[in-house]
């Protein structure tokens, strides 16, 4: 073992276990070929454009309209999900009701159901002759093939995130703290507002950000219900595909890079949120 220790490079601690070279080498090779090199290829492709050309592509009116829709719809959908996600997490943790286990399992459906299937199902449901669409049409609300349809699809796709981030935090919440608030005269609503909400907020925001990030890139479930009219109901991922179909590879790469940047910013924010969340929970 001393031989191993003596040969251990400075950047890792010695260990009696074998296989570091093999497993690490395999990991890096695979990561490099599958993820890093192709991603670099896209950035390289976008870099083929001059700065002005790049700015021109990513800020042309059609692209701007697509950003507005993608960001706007993702935001609205994430707001819906943070409200109903917290509600659902609350109900699942605190109450007993028939079918609870069924709901518990079904929450993860959007992770398991192929997006194309979700897309056509939601379209059938919300089309003007669909089960839900009929009712909404009577109320004068048109959902399918409008930006509202995009929101519906994105609510579906982001549904599990808030529930799954808030649930464990609610579970670990100390009931004595709520009892303390009650004994000091707080109403149930005041206890929720001043005691419970601050405790679950970081987790809820993390779920919100995850749902938002997922919605931004979502394609399959949206395109069936969206209508896909340029400037009106065209999401950013679709714009990339349209550019590809027109053989505008550089343009597709440029918009891809813009989206990737947005995704990284979100990822960074989610990391900060999770750190905040942990510091809150781990206080003592």
């Amino acid at each position: 073992m001393t031989v191993v220790a003596a040969r251990t490079p400075f950047w890792r601690k010695p260990s009696v276990l074998p296989g570091f070279g093999l497993s690490m080498g395999l990991t890096l090779l695979y990561l490099g070929f599958i993820v890093l090199i192709p991603l670099a290829a896209m950035i390289l492709r976008a870099a083929g454009l001059s700065w002005d050309e790049f700015v021109g592509v990513v800020t042309d009116p059609r692209a701007l309209a697509a950003y507005r829709l993608s960001f706007g719809a993702s935001f609205v959908a994430a707001v819906v999900n943070i409200v109903f996600g917290v509600l659902t997490a609350w109900v699942l943790v605190r109450y007993e009701f028939p079918g609870k286990r069924f709901v518990e399992g079904l929450v993860d459906l959007p992770f398991a159901l192929p997006t194309a299937v979700a897309g056509i199902a939601l379209t059938a449901l919300f089309a003007e002759n669909g089960w839900v669409g009929q009712i909404l049409a009577k109320a004068g609300l048109k959902v399918a093939f409008t930006p509202l349809g995009v929101v519906i699809a994105l609510v579906f796709i982001g549904l599990p995130f808030v529930v799954r981030t808030v649930q464990p935090v609610l579970q670990d919440l100390d009931k004595e703290v709520e009892e303390a608030a009650a004994s000091l005269g707080a109403s149930r609503l005041q206890t929720f507002r001043h005691i419970i909400l601050p405790a679950i907020l970081p987790a809820a925001l993390t779920g919100f950000a995850l749902a938002f990030a997922r919605a931004l890139g979502e394609y399959g479930s949206v395109i069936f219900i969206a209508g896909n009219l340029p400037m009106k109901s065209e999401i950013v991922p679709l714009l990339i595909i349209i550019k590809l179909e027109q053989f505008d590879y550089a343009g597709a790469a440029a918009i891809g890079v813009a989206m990737l940047t947005a995704a990284f910013v979100l990822l960074f924010m989610i990391n900060l949120l999770q750190r905040w969340s942990r510091s809150r929970i781990g206080a003592f």
Partner: peptide
């Protein structure tokens, strides 16, 4: 974790830009 944060469309696009007719 990176592929989870990337849009599926981009996940396809990068291979087209790598191996496609006009690709790298």
């Amino acid at each position: 974790d990176l592929p989870f944060s990337v849009s599926p469309v981009i996940s396809g696009l990068i291979y087209v830009l790598m191996f496609g007719g006009q690709g790298l």
